[in-house]
Design a protein around this nucleic acid. Sequence first.
DNA 1: GATCGATTGCTAAGCACTTAGCTATTATAG
DNA 2: CTATAATAGCTAAGTGCTTAGCAATCGATC
Lengths: 163, 163
Amino acid sequence: MVDQVDRILEQWSTEKPDLDVSPMAVIGRLSRTALAIETRLAATFTRYGLDASSFDVLATLLRSGAPYRIAPAALARDAMISTSAVAQRLNKLQTRGLVSREANPDDGRGTLVALTDAGKRLIDTALAPHVETERAITAILTIEEQSILVGLLQRINAAATRD
Amino acid sequence: MVDQVDRILEQWSTEKPDLDVSPMAVIGRLSRTALAIETRLAATFTRYGLDASSFDVLATLLRSGAPYRIAPAALARDAMISTSAVAQRLNKLQTRGLVSREANPDDGRGTLVALTDAGKRLIDTALAPHVETERAITAILTIEEQSILVGLLQRINAAATRD
DNA sequence: GATCGATTGCTAAGCACTTAGCTATTATAG
DNA sequence: CTATAATAGCTAAGTGCTTAGCAATCGATC
């Protein structure tokens, strides 16, 4: 099966025959696959009036368990984005009535973000279809293959993160 | 090795014990690994006064071979972005004198983007260090493991793209 | 207990993408 | 040949991220 990355590698081998560009075979596919997945998942989010960012916030609140209340800083760590980006996501969700902000009783600087009833209903509805979309993608691999893939990704991730 | 994705899966199994969220183990790691790689690669681009987008354009021109001239539409297909985004990338690179735009002699609507001498020198300089950064990441896996990973990614990519 | 550095969460400004919409040119159908 | 549809490339406007910078509060040290 010849894909776009194969064509790119072929061009490099013609233009820079002395350069070993084999790392691109791995990293190129990884980036493109992540993008393809993102695009595919977006369709499900749209069906429920959401996008990946909003879904992410609501799902993080849901899986934190009752009373579905967490600090913005925790949302930022979890989503690997800045606290500023979190504030902007929350502004949007709060305007739609899906989350609310309360003062943190234990920390005068802090805020607690809470799922509203409408937010809880929406994420409860959207969660299973989202996971089904993910399953439609991963089901191409056996459980064993998925487990191999996860192991390889963990090692690549560790190598990319260190230093 | 327990990572952030493991903690997320554990939360889900507590909060939604009836929902099989195992697809998240694969897709969550894939997204996070792609992001970690992107972050790591950015440092090398910065060393040469570039970012991923600019590097991408210059590298695409370089690997197309002499005379290093291609249409904006081809750049868009290759980078999987809109032609509008290409136009904006080109505006920036043209301002810096790294690419030039010429009329396409074979198509009155079209433009050809060309590497300037300065652009060619820059990408010739930055290419090998970039590939070395990629190799520093992928070298954690043996060649056989890399080849297994590529095969699994190709299948996931195909599954995410179809329908 | 006062001070000073760290932390929390926010807005403002900048940046790179998207879609929408435009002009100009080319290809197709009759 | 002409009318119409398709294509190429662009700018404008909107979106969501980033970094910078702010005010308020907390914690550690003396």
